[in-house]
């Protein structure tokens, strides 16, 4: 019930750890952009809606990229929103290219950087096959790792390069030059024959990294598990293993297990209810329950990103009823 650690922290650290000031500051920015809202509903109501939407994870919709990646909660909320909005792509079995997935991401976040989508696609595809089609779930899980652990993976890439080049990033900790040389020679020799780096050495470096990393990183025990199954591995081999590891997916808490990815009865019900209200759509929706035979390459309907922000937020607030119970786990 009580966590003494939380109560013992200095004020500023407690606030920083939970990003309280980030959200308060953002709430004020939003308020300044929507001054007419306060005169109508009052400030307290405005803040209530803002903080409720943060809890429910709908606060990131149609926001700028810098905000979306500002906190781990925002990142998880964005992943979840992406999954919920475009789940039908996977359900229909459509395969899309990297650029098409990027367009979908931009529907939720207009200034989403292409670089990040490319990096995620590179986990799924080989370098020379970047135009190939990917399934929704492959892309989603690769994207999750790349987006959520982005800073961590950058550090991992640097460590990997050092190891490949025969440098041991841990040499500061093991300073005896003889042992360093001893290790160097065979690594260089092997690198020409074998691909990648030695898993156990790689793990030592990563363990060290997890300890001092200030951004989120995957649970070290699971990283160890991934690396203890193999002798050697490449950087992308490591990323693929991370993205397919269901324990890491669970620890992150934004997406369901791979098997349940297409299964979201609450949203399905809500969708059906909404579709039933649109007279023109009823026929096509009920006559074609096997939607998979439709080549629906057009992106699903979402609110256009250039709509004024406060407008979009009100839309979310209305549909919140159905999402509440599934969203609780991540807050």
């Amino acid at each position: 019930m009580l966590s003494p650690e939380r109560l013992a922290l200095p004020d500023y650290e407690y606030l920083a750890q939970r990003h309280v000031l980030t959200y308060m500051e953002d709430a004020v920015c939003q308020l300044l952009e929507n001054k007419e809202d306060i005169s109508q509903y009052g400030i307290a109501r405005f803040f209530t809606e803002y903080f409720n939407s943060v809890c429910q994870g709908t606060h990131i919709l149609f926001r700028e990229f810098s905000f979306i990646q500002a906190t781990p909660h925002n990142r998880a909320s964005f992943l979840r929103a992406f999954w919920r909005c475009f789940r039908t792509v996977g359900k229909n079995g459509d395969l899309l290219t990297m650029r098409e997935y990027h367009c979908l991401l931009q529907l939720l976040c207009p200034d989403f950087p292409l670089e990040l989508t490319q990096k995620a696609a590179r986990i799924v595809l080989m370098d020379d096959a970047m135009d190939c089609l990917m399934s929704f779930s492959d892309f989603l899980f690769a994207f999750q790792i790349q987006f959520y652990y982005s800073e961590f993976l950058e550090s991992v890439a640097a460590i990997y390069q050092d190891l490949l080049a025969g440098k041991n990033p841990n040499t500061v900790i093991v300073p005896t030059s003889s042992s360093g040389q001893h290790r160097q020679r065979p690594t260089v020799g092997e690198a020409s024959v074998l691909e990648g780096v030695e898993a156990s050495l790689f793990y030592q470096c990563l363990e060290n990294l997890c300890d001092r990393h200030k951004y989120s990183c995957p649970p070290p025990a699971l990283v160890k598990e991934v690396l203890s199954n193999v002798q050697r591995l490449t950087f992308y081999g490591f990323l693929v293993a991370l993205s397919k590891h269901h324990g890491i997916n669970q620890a992150l808490g934004a997406l369901p297990d791979k098997g349940d990815l297409m299964h979201d009865p609450a949203t399905d019900e809500e969708l059906e209810r909404l579709l039933a209200q649109i007279p023109g759509l009823v026929n096509s929706a009920t006559a074609n329950p096997e939607a998979s035979c439709l080549p629906s390459r057009t992106p699903p309907r979402v609110g256009s990103p250039w709509r004024p922000l406060h407008h979009a937020r009100k839309l979310d607030a209305e549909s919140d009823g159905s999402t509440e119970e599934t969203d609780e786990s991540e807050t």
């Binding site: 966590s3 939380r6 109560l7 004020d11 407690y14 606030l15 939970r18 309280v20 959200y23 308060m24 009052g42 307290a44 109501r45 803040f47 209530t48 903080f51 409720n52 943060v54 809890c55 909660h73 807050t331």
Partner: peptide, 22 residues
């Protein structure tokens, strides 16, 4: 109030706080 109570989930706490105020 947040600093005084140090809630486990400060954002939910704030939502509740403002709701009550409203």
């Amino acid at each position: 109030k947040v600093l005084e109570a140090r809630p486990e989930e400060p954002i939910a706490f704030l939502a509740h706080y403002f709701e009550n105020m409203g």
